[in-house]
């Protein structure tokens, strides 16, 4: 997997600004902690499978429901699969799904939102009707209906589905930001200098909503992982023998009290992951917002 290099927080901003933002970000201790945790999770997810002799699908009939031990670090589940191997595999899936959905949804949202806002008129009206329509369905219901049909297409199709229902609110915000940017003098200036509309969107509008988009992407990561987990819990998402954090938690829920290791490792990692992403997002918001600390006159 190479997607891990595309974590949203590394999206480039102009050099002078980005160092400033980085400095402010680094000063925020909880955000920095979140970033470190994220990196560690990636290391765990992608290096983990090489650390253990067990594969996530291998069944060890000699150890059913065994507690954590030297053999099975995090114990085994009720059919004798290694919980560490499974959790690491599930983490991998959840991380990738979360990031892919976030990047795709944010991209789609910025495209639709910026075009609707900039061109106005019927483009705007149609786009917004479509957005409202998608908002009226709880996305969860539609994904649940459709996903059994897409089982054969695998988790990529699942990523697509999650994306389709994750961009609407962002698009609305981008649209309203574009509406006000459009009236800003530097956009007007570009127009009077003969710069074409798509060029203006690309060069002036999108860079100026970039800070919002970056933050939104970090929030989307958490949202996507939670949706995936929720859907997998009901059996609508990642399908066996493959696992995600969601399916692991779902299958371990019943055993939470009696065999806690089947449940709490996956659940704990999930909470830690989403929490870390949220902290990073919150830190970025403060770092990017020049008014975060009241400036004096």
């Amino acid at each position: 997997m190479t997607t891990d290099t595309r974590t949203p927080e590394t999206v480039a901003a102009p050099s002078g600004r980005s160092t400033l933002v980085l400095r402010r970000f680094a000063r925020n201790r909880s955000a920095l902690a979140g970033a470190v945790v994220l990196v560690l999770l990636f290391v765990l997810a992608f290096a983990g499978p090489y650390l253990t002799p067990w594969s996530y699908s291998h069944v060890d009939y000699g150890a059913l429901r065994s507690a954590p031990s030297a053999e099975h670090w995090w114990g085994t589940n009720r059919i004798g699969q290694d919980v560490f191997a499974q959790t690491v595999r599930g983490l991998q899936k959840s991380l990738v799904i979360g990031l892919l959905v976030a990047v795709l949804a944010t991209g789609l949202a910025s495209l639709v939102g910026a075009c609707a806002g900039y061109f106005g008129g019927w483009t705007d009206r149609l786009a917004m009707f479509f957005v409202d329509l998608l908002l009226v369905f709880p996305s969860f219901l539609v994904i649940a209906i459709v996903s059994p049909r897409l089982r054969s297409a695998g988790w990529i199709a699942f990523v697509g589905l999650l994306t389709v229902f994750a961009w609407m609110i962002t698009a609305r915000v981008v649209r309203s930001m574009t509406l006000s940017l459009k009236e800003r003098e530097f956009v007007r200036a570009a127009r009077y200098m003969g710069v074409g509309p798509f060029r203006i969107i690309w060069r002036h509008v999108l860079p100026n909503v970039a800070s919002f988009l970056i933050i939104d992407a970090t929030i989307q990561v958490g949202g996507a992982v939670m949706s995936e987990t929720a859907l997998s819990y009901f059996g609508f998402g990642v399908q066996p023998p493959d696992v995600s954090l969601g399916t692991l938690i779902a299958s371990g829920t019943g055993a939470a009290v009696t065999y806690p290791w089947m449940f709490f490792f996956a659940a704990g990692l999930l909470v830690v992951f989403v929490l870390a992403v949220n902290l990073v997002g919150d830190g970025l918001r403060d770092a990017l917002d020049p008014t975060a600390k009241g400036a004096a006159r």
Binding site: P14, F186, R188, A189, A190, H204, P207, N208
Partner: peptide
Amino acid sequence: QIVFQDPMASLDPRMP
């Protein structure tokens, strides 16, 4: 060509 009122608003803050 035009020169605008508010130099902060008329220059794209994200462009050198």
